[in-house]
Design a protein around this nucleic acid. Structure first.
Length: 400
DNA sequence: TCTGGGGTCCTAGGACCC
DNA sequence: TCTGGGGTCCTAGGACCC
């Protein structure tokens, strides 16, 4: 493969930063995002906005994002809000506003695209960018051979900031794996370049957890084997890794530790599944709370049907997800003869799935998922070229 | 008072077909 | 009748990511 230059761009504390644009008086304060609508700031008697505090929160929510000031208290995303309140009771709490974040996301991506069009979406707040061609064009311009590349990344950062008033961190490297690691090295507002020859000094001292794809389980197993750093992982015999972690994952671990990754930047992909789920305020019992569970399942199916309609998709497989008290989670899938998209049909299939689960434990979460997605047949039904088949009633048979 | 919601990918076993 | 491969589809669970 010819040498490439890939950027990983990660927005800094994205949701929190978007909220700070709205409430600039909170700049520098510990703030977490994760509340419900009821935690919306309210005007107080003096006309000043009153903000909810972590200590006011009751419920099962978690932190989605924390400002850097809040992170200083040990508060981080994924942490339960009640747990976080113990660490920082006076930390300000704001409700999540996905519409605002999606709008900001569209703006920052458009700003990047103005400069570099080859972008892979990695969710609401990060992207990969293939800069290979643009970097080659700029190579001649700068004195330093990598100066043009760094200037390109700086131009992207400036354009994002101009369009959104938000900062981001960019990692530059020959592949996605290293670019992703690099973008974390100098947060916030960072710009980090990793060349192949920097691997041993910059990457090998890092924890294996810095590799995107090594999660808590794999890290724990590696650590139990005495492997803490990427350098230690790189020193392992690949056959030994394969023996312990399986053919695919073991080989991938070895390649990653050596900084090797040839995945392309994917500019377009079709969605595989769409789902909706909700965690209840209190655990619900299949018998005692049957009616409420039924209503929740129906509304999840309706939300799913709306999403399918918006994307003009139908699903051949409908599945449910249940999480019980004690956090045990089960799923059931049902593949249908024909794709469905209407709420009633989804609800029916979900009901069939539900019948196959032992419901003696109380439930804390219920979800519905659509997969086996395909373009909805709706257009052809509406098409004037296709005449609807006449409905024949029993009466017609006797009275043609 | 633990642990959200929306995703992707992988594995492994069984059914079924050639 | 037994043995055996390969391929695909389906299901369930789990790891991981944002």
């Amino acid at each position: 493969m010819t040498p490439r230059w890939i950027a990983h761009l990660d927005m800094d504390a994205f949701y929190a930063s978007v909220e700070l644009l709205r409430y600039p008086q909170l700049k520098g304060l510990p703030v977490v995002i994760g509340g419900r609508r009821e935690h919306q700031p309210q005007p107080g008697p003096d006309g000043q906005l009153q903000f909810a505090r972590l200590k006011d929160y009751t419920g099962r929510g978690v932190i989605t994002t924390a400002t850097y000031a809040a992170r200083a208290f040990g508060v981080r995303s994924g942490l339960g809000l009640m747990k976080a309140a113990q660490l920082s009771p006076d930390c300000i709490l704001l409700p999540v506003d996905f519409e605002a974040y999606r709008a900001a996301s569209r703006r920052f991506k458009a700003a990047v695209r103005e400069i570099a069009p080859v972008i892979e979406d990695r969710g609401i707040d990060e992207i990969y960018i293939d800069l290979t061609e643009l970097a080659a064009q700029r190579e001649g311009v700068a004195h330093d051979p990598l100066g043009g590349l760094k200037q390109l990344a700086q131009d992207i950062k400036n354009n994002v900031r101009g369009a959104t008033q938000l900062t981001c961190s960019i990692g530059l490297a020959p592949n996605k794996l290293l670019a992703k690691i690099a973008s974390e090295l100098d947060k916030p507002d960072g710009l980090t370049l990793i060349r192949p020859e920097d691997l041993t000094v910059r990457i090998w001292p890092l924890s294996v957890r810095a590799i995107n794809g090594v999660g808590p389980k794999a890290a724990e197993r590696l650590e139990s084997l005495g492997i803490h750093t990427i350098g230690a992982l790189a020193a392992c015999d690949p056959a030994w890794l394969i023996q312990r972690f399986g053919k695919a994952y073991g080989a991938w671990l070895h390649e990653s530790a050596h900084g090797r990754d040839d995945r392309p930047v994917i500019t377009h992909s079709e969605s595989v599944s769409i789902s909706h789920e909700t965690t209840f305020e209190r655990d619900l019992h299949a018998v005692r709370d049957k009616a409420e569970l039924g209503r929740i399942l129906t509304s999840l199916c309706e939300a799913l049907a709306q999403d399918l309609a918006k994307k003009k998709l139908a699903a051949r497989t409908i599945g449910i997800k249940l999480r019980f008290e004690g956090f045990k989670t089960v799923t059931r899938d049902q593949t249908l003869d024909a794709p469905v998209f209407e709420a009633r049909a989804i609800r029916h299939a979900a009901g069939l799935c539900l019948k196959r689960v032992d419901l003696s434990l109380r439930l804390r979460l219920m979800g519905v998922r659509a997969s086996g997605l395909q373009a909805t047949p709706l257009q052809s039904v509406r098409s004037p070229l296709v005449k609807p088949r006449p409905r024949i009633s029993i009466a017609d048979l006797f009275d043609p």
